[in-house]
Design a binder for these strands. Sequence first.
DNA 1: TGAAAAACCACACGTTCATGCGATAGCGCC
DNA 2: GGCGCTATCGCATGAACGTGTGGTTTTTCA
Lengths: 223, 223
Amino acid sequence: MQFPLALAIIEDQAAIRETLHDYLCAQPEFRCVLIVDSVEAFLQELPTAAGPPQLILSDIGLPGLTGIEGIPLIQELLPEAQVLMLSVYADAERVFEALRAGAVGYLLKHTPLAQLKEHLLQVAAGGSPMSPGVARFVVQAFQQQLVAPIAALPLEHLLAEPLTARELEVVRGIEDGLSYKLIAERHFVSIDTVRSHIRNVYRKLQVNSKAELLAQTLKRQRG
Amino acid sequence: MQFPLALAIIEDQAAIRETLHDYLCAQPEFRCVLIVDSVEAFLQELPTAAGPPQLILSDIGLPGLTGIEGIPLIQELLPEAQVLMLSVYADAERVFEALRAGAVGYLLKHTPLAQLKEHLLQVAAGGSPMSPGVARFVVQAFQQQLVAPIAALPLEHLLAEPLTARELEVVRGIEDGLSYKLIAERHFVSIDTVRSHIRNVYRKLQVNSKAELLAQTLKRQRG
DNA sequence: TGAAAAACCACACGTTCATGCGATAGCGCC
DNA sequence: GGCGCTATCGCATGAACGTGTGGTTTTTCA
């Protein structure tokens, strides 16, 4: 990570904007490239900025587009940029929306300037700073099992021994609730061939019955 | 929040345990009530502790039960206690598991003692401290839309004929990949009873095999 | 309190499944 | 060419499953 980091600020309240500007832009770690009062202004003035921002500190409650609505628009132009939200709102819903939209962190406005600086540096270092109460919302989402355990990704990637195309076909048949006989008919092969594939699938997935196979699939999908 | 906060520490490595003990227990904000080297020891010695801990700082990599496995056990005895994980592992999977198990925060072991103290206080204040990289994993889970927008709902509400408690139990057994025999053993009934329930479930759900039942469950879960 | 619902149990029969042992044929690749 | 992998197919056996019929006991609740 090389300093100074190109920083942009989106904040509509002039007083706060000035404070952030005065403090952050005076830091040697940052180089302010764009200070605006709305998402619209950001998008419009971006071409005239002193350079592409790497970090964007954005308010949520803005006139016109909200900070949350702005994230995807900004990321379209600046895929590398990381957006850190700075908000007075501390409700779970807004936090989730911001994170889902692509924000990498969420701070409350009462955060001291020195900490804000630290948090911006954490973002640049791959961190995701969140004010204490905000983080608790996020953690609770996990505890309420709202989050899938691990990327619900094609099982083949999780396996040492990948399944062949044929094997995947019969697995899909089983996931559709078909009997061996029907799977055989679906793919125009004999039932013994299906058995043969199943045998290999079971070995690779370490299961011993249709039920276990389906149970594993279920688990993978919900955790 | 009244000080001092009752703190317990679970850490198997003596050197680290001593360091934590020496530093944290010397702080006026904390009152160490139990310092142990395993989850098993924690559960066993809890009755003899100087009082019920409000905060529990636990390692993950422990001999016997892991810190993650210990969380639900601990929470059964101490529903009010908040568990903060302290780990050398920085992989997404372990972080998710810990949070899902009930941890309120997740710190890496290289965290400086002074920060660790701050983080413990944050926990007591309703925060969820996470080391920067750890928080990023969590945020990414949101960005990858792994968070369920709405809860996926119990099949019983979709049915004209609702399943009875017993019937749901055997369905869960099937979803866990168990055989009739194992389901029977799990609920201390005969295998013929299980058959009987299965029969009714199949009629209500309009399916004719385990595979179809599981397939239906799968469909329902992924929409 | 009395009937309905749920839970429990038993036996029997045919089907499907799991898994052992094969075998043949095509393909890519060194 | 020979080697390994995949796909195909066959057969046999025991276990698990699905479904029919018949019960009894316990719980629920109108």
